Computed example of a mutant assay.
Amino acid sequence: MDNVPRRRYIDGLVENFKELQAVHLELCNDVANVVPDLVMADADDLPSKTARLTSFERRSVLRAIFSCIEASSFHMRKHLVLHNGDLLSPELALALKELQVDVSGSGVVTTKPLKVSALSLLRLTVKVFGECYEPLDEYNLKPTKCEGVDFEKMIPSFKVRDRITHPKRISDLTITDEELLNAVTAFRWFNRFVIDSIGLIAGHTLSDAKNFEERIKVLNKQIAQYDEEKAQLESRFKISH
């Protein structure tokens, strides 16, 4: 890869990384604007913070939560394709782009939007990220898995999101204390996933840069040794003639 394409590639990675951080932070702020300190609050304080919310505030915070989850997940998948494309199968790369292969009636192969649930896309994002990024013990960082009590709250929360987005009766717009607490708990799990993932991306990028510098040092030594041997050979050749 020559300098210009490589520079564009690196610029694209940096831009995507900055965008992921900016989008996640902005949408976390949307959640915090409804319930201040929600993300950082102690787990024991969550029930009291969520119980006093009005119906409008409950719907607002739940919509903000899933806006953050879906948008940040999208940028995570974008990063995986851009930065780890060489590790992905063609089928996996298409799925991360939310596309699938389609064949028209005339036999032309194209792609079309992938029909998949938001929860399945989230599971895919977390799974592939864990396969692409190894733990960084020096930073106490490791990939997240879709497991544990907090993640399990995500499953019913997606159903609540769907219910208030497409209400069939007035009661569908009501979010109970338990449903709201589940959504907030799931959101806190997701926020930890994104923060840890950003740390892994940054840590591996720094590690790659250090390894690249070390390779350059080794190559420079090899080149210097080659130049020295070449000079010696040329000197001997001149003496023999």
Rank of each mutant, 00 (worst) to 15 (best):
S117R: 04
L62E: 01
L87W: 09
K142D: 12
E138Y: 14
S106V: 02
K145Q: 15
S67F: 08
A71N: 07
A43M: 11
L80W: 05
R52K: 15
T111A: 04
D30N: 14
I65D: 03
L122A: 02
E57N: 12
N140A: 13
Y133W: 05
E91D: 13
C132V: 05
K145W: 05
D137G: 07
F74N: 14
K145H: 10
P143F: 07
F56A: 15
V34I: 15
D45C: 11
L121D: 05
A118W: 06
R123G: 00
L96S: 01
V108F: 03
G148K: 05
L119W: 02
D102N: 09
V116H: 04
I10C: 03
R123L: 00
A51M: 11
P36E: 02
V108W: 00
V101I: 13
P47T: 06
E131Y: 02
V103D: 01
L27T: 02
E131A: 07
D42H: 14
V116S: 11
K49M: 15
E57I: 08
L124E: 05
L122W: 01
E131P: 00
P135R: 06
Y139I: 06
M76A: 11
M76D: 06
L124W: 01
T111C: 07
P135V: 08
E147T: 12
V23G: 00
D150H: 11
E147D: 14
K142Y: 12
A71R: 09
C146W: 03
H79M: 13
S67R: 15
F66R: 09
D150Q: 14
S120V: 03
D86S: 13
E19R: 09
E98H: 06
T54L: 10
R58P: 09
L141R: 06
V39H: 10
K145E: 14
A71S: 14
P143H: 08
L20W: 06
T110N: 05
T125R: 02
A95Y: 03
D37F: 05
A95W: 03
C28M: 10
F17A: 07
Q100K: 10
F129V: 01
E138V: 11
F129Q: 02
L82M: 15
V109K: 01
L20P: 02
K97G: 03
V103F: 00
R59K: 15
E91I: 08
Q100A: 07
V109H: 00
D44E: 15
T125Y: 00
L87P: 04
S72M: 07
P36V: 02
S48V: 12
N16I: 12
L99H: 04
H75Q: 08
F74V: 07
L27P: 00
D37K: 10
I69V: 15
E15M: 10
T110R: 05
E98C: 06
N84G: 14
R123D: 04
S48D: 14
C132N: 02
A43E: 14
C146A: 11
I69N: 03
E15T: 12
T125F: 00
L136K: 05
S67W: 10
E98P: 00
D102Q: 06
L62K: 02
F74A: 13
K112Q: 12
S89N: 07
L96Q: 04
A93T: 08
T125P: 01
P113A: 06
T110A: 03
A22C: 01
K78T: 15
D86H: 12
R59G: 09
D30S: 10
V39F: 08
V109G: 00
R58A: 09
A93E: 13
A93I: 03
E91A: 11
